[in-house]
Design a protein around this nucleic acid. Structure first.
Lengths: 153, 153
DNA sequence: CTCATCTCAGGGCGACTGAGATAT
DNA sequence: CATATCTCAGTCTCCCTGAGATGA
């Protein structure tokens, strides 16, 4: 029967004050929102990441794609397979270095990226709905620093 | 052979400017750091969460623990099993409501929580190493708002 | 009958590891 | 020889669902 009022199952103070917990909880929410939004159009997070990299940097090997997007080599293989099947990218062996595959964005893939841009813009607004402009900027700035610093070990 | 200079595999702009991507990337790093630190002393993230809730709110049913810590009912069962086995909590049927189990923190469990507090404090410093005090406060504040707003739908 | 709770079994995804084949 | 790439197979953790049993 609970209390009459004033105890809407708050979270433990320890967790609320632990940055790593705040980050992973937020990530779970972000993950769900993005997954649902992309899933509704038949895409996944990794699809968007690879298409973004190809659009910005041009044809790229799979290993390089993995480095740029922080995606594991195994997952790059699987994701490229999916994107090839959907005709959004093409895979070709590099004649100058036959170890590697060069992945190229198709015109279809460019359009796809633009579509996903719109889907994601909506999702970001949903995710940050309660935050002021200042809070949004602070968040992006702080997490950017965190990633920069951590990636340089 | 790459360029002579100035191209240390940067990330795509689109990703760097997408809050959900920044959050999930940071979460992956946080997850790894916390997992390794807790794993080194035989603990898991869920262990710390449940112990925190029990310390702050006293004996609690499993369903309530799940609500307070945002842990799924199935995972609460598994985690309580582990904590019972390690003698950090005790499980007893509520005589007033025989549907539910009341979980109680043992003296051992209290000590364990203090130990984990120290482990986690170190980890938070590692995680936020490159950030100024202002950035850290901004981050905690922004993510707190995000979680508050999202949890109220 | 309905609702809440506890429990188990298992699916799905993301992050990751190991090993083999091939080429530099 | 060592190194780098691509690929497959498979593990592990977390998040979540479904369903059954019990009791309010």
């Amino acid at each position: 029967m609970n209390q009459v009022q004033g105890d809407p199952t708050p979270q433990p103070e320890r967790l609320r004050q632990t940055p790593s917990w705040l980050i992973t909880q937020s990530a779970t929410i972000a993950h769900r929102l993005v997954g649902e939004a992309l899933g509704a159009v038949g895409a996944k997070r990794y699809h968007y990441a690879l298409l973004s990299a190809l659009e910005q940097f041009g044809p790229t090997s799979q290993a390089e794609l993995g480095r740029r997007c922080s995606i594991d080599r195994s997952d790059v293989v699987a994701t490229v397979n999916e994107l090839v099947e959907q005709k959004y990218v093409e895979r070709a062996q590099d004649p100058g270095n036959r170890r590697q595959n060069i992945i190229t964005l198709t015109r279809n893939g460019s359009c796809r990226l633009n579509d996903l841009d719109r889907v994601l813009a909506d999702t970001q607004n949903q995710l940050l709905d309660g935050l002021s402009e200042t809070q949004r900027n602070n968040l992006v700035e702080a997490l950017g620093s965190l990633l920069d610093h951590q990636s340089s070990h």
